[in-house]
């Protein structure tokens, strides 16, 4: 916990989609650096979609909420669609009670669904919406 400067949030690239995940010990500085870097990467790599997995975030306060909202807006301006996936139930409840709706942010139940929404299901779909595990393979 001493050297926070070194903390970097990895951003992976899968063809035209950027995939990343926020960690629980997210401080304001790291969040800001992350937002800047992601915006930069969207522009330079001409990403069409961005998946942000937040399933490990145990809290989202107004700062992180604002970061996510702003990221979505900026990405949209740059022509990319952002999907925030995997919000935990207690976090969702707390956010609405806090009065934060994440207006304009697109959400998915989990990373898998988010990826599917971004077009990652090349294999034929099982008829009745069954598991999509093979779609990512």
């Amino acid at each position: 916990m001493t050297d926070r400067q070194s903390m970097d949030i990895p951003i992976l690239r899968l063809s035209d989609v950027l995939v990343t995940g926020l960690i629980n010990e997210l401080d304001d500085k790291t969040a800001t650096v992350f937002a800047d870097e992601l915006t930069e990467r969207i522009a330079t790599e001409r990403a069409r979609g961005v998946l942000i997995d937040i399933s490990r975030l145990e809290i989202i306060d107004s700062f992180v909420a604002r970061t996510l909202t702003e990221l979505s807006t900026m990405a949209r301006l740059l022509g990319a669609r952002v999907i925030v996936a995997g919000m935990r139930p207690p976090v969702a409840i707390t956010l609405v009670e806090l009065g934060l709706q994440l207006t304009g942010v697109e959400t998915a139940l989990n990373a898998e669904q988010g990826m599917a929404a971004l077009g990652w299901h090349h294999a034929p779909r099982p008829p009745e919406g069954g598991t999509r595990r093979e779609a990512l393979g």
């Binding site: 107004s62 909202t69 009065g99």
Partner: peptide, 20 residues
Amino acid sequence: ADGFTTGSGLGHGLGGARRL
């Protein structure tokens, strides 16, 4: 009164904390 619906995260975050 930072607003129940604005959700901008601006202001002092007081109203939000009070609701929690």
